[in-house]
Design a protein around this nucleic acid. Structure first.
Length: 276
DNA sequence: CTATAAACCTGCTGGC
DNA sequence: TGCCAGCAGGTTTATA
């Protein structure tokens, strides 16, 4: 479900509305969503600890705590975070509850809900995540994501370009929606072998990725299933998508029918006219 | 190294 | 209306 823009929406809201709160205690309703069984113990040890800040790396949320621990949340396909007052009932599929006390004294709770139980939560001591984070590629919305950086990410690999975009170790945060959208904006066919891209195409693709992600973020992400912000509002980006979920419909640019194929085991939409 | 398939889970949609 | 097949925004692991 959530890709970089959706996770970033959540991060910004956590930073604004949850940083500074105290975690009074944590309830885990479904241990399957923990990174490992030991995390049950770790979660019990962060009671009465302040949340200091919230960071994002790729699709991973990193909630920093006063004691230097890091609460890491990955929503995978269907996970979502919701901030509620304590007296409001939990929503369906709630898998974990963080009971929070806001600086102004408000008693809140942060729900992690996830019908498919694919998402993962863990608590890490300083340094324990370093190796894992080092496996992620560059952040595509950061200044250092240059043409050279994208070229380096592609490296010597010769695989369909969409495969590279989805590979979190090459570029962090792009998923199926924004891979298809970026390739459409760049006018590049998803099955084009990465080797065959010219420097100009690499530049165009790099710009297309930034444009696509920035636009999605501006619209608070894409909601066609479960992605909602902390307060339950849907993202508005669905209306702005060019190809994703539009197979069989006319291309918004040229009118040709958007096609659907399989690339890297994933449904892939593209315009056969606009993408060569 | 790459590529593919399966696994993890459950809900939803479309076709018959 | 009911049932079944297929699909879903992600990642990991096993197998060629």
């Amino acid at each position: 479900m959530p890709e970089l823009p959706e996770v970033e929406v959540t991060r910004q809201q956590l930073q604004q509305y949850v940083a500074g709160s105290v975690i009074e205690h944590v309830e885990v309703a479904e241990p399957k969503i923990l990174d490992s069984p030991e995390m049950l113990q770790r979660l019990s040890e962060i009671s009465n600890i302040h949340i200091t800040s919230c960071e994002r790396r790729g699709k991973l949320l990193l909630i920093h705590l006063e004691n230097t621990d890091i609460l890491a949340i990955h929503r995978r396909m269907a996970g979502n975070l919701t901030l509620l007052a304590r007296n409001v009932p939990n929503e369906l599929y709630t898998r974990a509850v963080f009971y929070l006390l806001a600086p102004n004294g408000a008693e809140q709770k942060l729900l992690y809900s996830d019908p498919r139980k694919f998402g993962r939560i863990g608590v890490y001591h300083p340094g324990e995540l370093t190796q894992k984070l080092a496996l992620l590629g560059p952040e595509p919305l950061q200044d250092d994501f240059t043409d050279a950086a994208l070229k380096h990410a592609i490296g010597t690999a010769n695989r369909p370009i969409k495969t590279i975009l989805l590979d979190q170790s090459k570029i962090a945060g792009i998923g199926n929606i924004y891979a298809d959208e970026s390739l459409f904006i760049a006018g590049i066919h998803p099955e084009r072998y990465s080797h065959s891209l010219t420097d100009i195409e690499i530049h165009t693709l790099r710009m297309a990725i930034a444009t696509t992600l920035t636009s999605a973020l501006k619209h608070a992400g894409t909601t066609f299933g479960r992605h909602k912000d902390l307060f339950g509002s849907a993202g508005r980006n669905l209306d702005y998508l060019q190809v994703y979920q539009r197979d069989g419909l006319p291309c918004k640019i040229c009118g040709n029918v958007i096609q659907r194929i399989r690339v890297a085991q994933r449904s892939t939409r593209f315009c056969p006219e606009c993408q060569k």
